[in-house]
Design a protein around this nucleic acid. Structure first.
Lengths: 136, 136
DNA sequence: ATCCTACGATGGACTTCGTCCAAGTCAAGA
DNA sequence: TCTTGACTTGGACGAAGTCCATCGTAGGAT
């Protein structure tokens, strides 16, 4: 994720202060923020940034494949900046913590042809659930 | 799912016409309805049923383990009445249709010990995504 | 069979999450 | 530096879901 800004410029992005700030927020720790959390952190550096712009920018990053949308048990979507390395998620049923994990094997290949019902299967999302050491 | 009403009564549910209708809607075809779709179908049989009651009843069925919530990205939750047989989901990225599928292989076993971070992993949820024949 | 009452249903207001749009702003090429 | 069209803004809007005061009724008690 570290040269995100460079890659975006290379793709012809007009670089605005708003987009830079959103990208920098995601480029920080690899936590999984909601759109509103991204907006909150962005607003610390650029107080007048609007919610609509944060949503737009996140949506564009998702389309570009730089960020993943993670569906959660909770409500708001979360954004995962670690999109370039394929990975899955391990969620604590107690406290909701999310960790990135890297299972072995080929989950898409595990779905037999006769179970695909004519779908063009493009991706697979795996969520492991269990209790973390602190909650056990 | 076929003796759902009996099981619910056995658990001390007060059986009301509303709850019966919601349970019967789910007991029908094994599709994955949204709460509003459940409400719509329930209202065909019991026109004055309220949205709040449908939400309440679905929530109770989830807590009782009779129905699963299927989390979808950016869409309304869907309810899966096939909770008693383990299975995974195939979701159309276009229209949101959900199908039950049964992959081969052991996804929990695919998560190496050193990727578990001390979690007691109890379950795994797999969602395959792609375009259905109609949307392709 | 009828009465009581606590549990459940109702519906409308409210919240949360997200999208849309018209008007204003500004990055970057000429 | 000028120009222009892509970007941003904020507020209205919409969808999904929750909350709550009040009313209704299932099912045990009499």
């Amino acid at each position: 994720m570290s040269d995100l800004l460079g890659r975006l410029r290379g793709r012809g992005w007009r670089m605005t202060s708003q987009r830079r700030v959103v990208a920098e927020v995601l480029d920080g720790d690899h936590v999984h923020l909601t759109a509103d959390e991204v907006h909150l952190r962005a607003a610390e550096r650029l107080p007048e940034i609007s919610r609509a712009t944060v949503y737009n920018t996140l949506g564009e990053l998702v389309v570009l494949g730089e960020v993943l949308e993670v569906s959660t048990v909770g409500r708001a979507k979360r954004y995962d900046p670690n999109a370039r390395r394929p990975h899955q998620h391990l969620v604590c049923s107690g406290c909701g913590t999310v960790r990135d994990v890297h299972p072995v094997g080929n989950a898409i290949g595990d779905l037999p042809e006769e179970e695909r019902f004519g779908f063009a299967v493009g991706s697979v999302e795996i969520t492991y659930r269990g209790l973390c050491p602190a909650c056990a």
